[in-house]
Amino acid sequence: MRFIKHWKAVLLSLTIVATVFLIWDAIFTKNGVWGFNPDYHLPFLLFGMPIEEWLFFFCIPYASIFIHYSLAYFKPNLLIAKDITKAITITIICVLLPILFFNFDRAYTAVNYSFLIVLLGVSLIYGLEYLRRFYIAFLIILIPFFIVNGILTGTGLEEPVVWYNNDENLGIRLLTIPIEDIGYAFTMLFGNVFLIEKFKKKD
């Protein structure tokens, strides 16, 4: 694969996306949209967030996009047809728009789905080819996502590692995971893939 040859594009993309998400994270943490259980992290905080949270936005996206590019290497022809990819994307946007409209007062739902809708809208024009593979890769990524995120949100624990204020989300949980987390993960990961592909072309 020689994935390392694209290290500049990967590092730049990770940094850009992480910066956006860390700003979002810091604001939400300060305003009590979510928070971190001090029993599970080191006492070092930066802008109210533990160092583990900062590392999250580099380690998890890197591991996840590696899955995406491994799929591209070992199964290069495993792609969704363009018309189907476009239909899936438009359907997701159409489903999210009314949810966003009726829940704009819920901070996590509003910001999360706004980012996702914008990303998908831009991708319809400039990144449809990337989505053809990423939709498949994301289904694979969801397996470790549900395991790890389930533990972080309290599955099998007396108290969650990360807690959420249900007044700021839809209150729908998949086991212990807020349903918005799936959109959050998609935006973070595909945002990286989208930028990596653009930077690779420039290189």
Rank of each mutant, 00 (worst) to 15 (best):
E129Q: 12
L142N: 05
V161M: 14
F104G: 12
I179S: 08
Y130S: 15
M188L: 12
Y113G: 07
V161F: 13
T153S: 02
F138N: 05
A110W: 11
L142H: 03
N192Q: 11
F115M: 07
G171N: 04
V148Y: 04
Y135I: 01
G156A: 04
R173E: 02
F104I: 12
K200H: 14
F101P: 15
E197L: 09
L124Y: 05
E159L: 13
G171Y: 01
E158R: 13
I172P: 02
K198C: 13
W163D: 10
I125C: 15
D167S: 10
L120K: 03
I182K: 02
L116R: 08
G156P: 00
N112H: 07
D105M: 05
R132G: 05
Y130H: 14
V111G: 14
I151W: 05
I172K: 04
T155V: 00
I117K: 14
G121C: 09
Y113P: 05
R173L: 02
F190G: 15
G156Q: 02
F115L: 06
F104W: 12
F190D: 13
Y108K: 05
Y164G: 07
I177Q: 06
G127T: 09
A185Q: 00
A185Y: 05
G171T: 04
G183Y: 05
D105P: 12
L170E: 01
V148D: 01
G191W: 04
R132V: 02
V118P: 03
I196L: 00
P144A: 01
I179H: 11
Y164P: 10
I136Y: 04
I143D: 00
I117G: 12
F104Q: 11
E168M: 12
G171E: 01
Y113Q: 04
R133P: 06
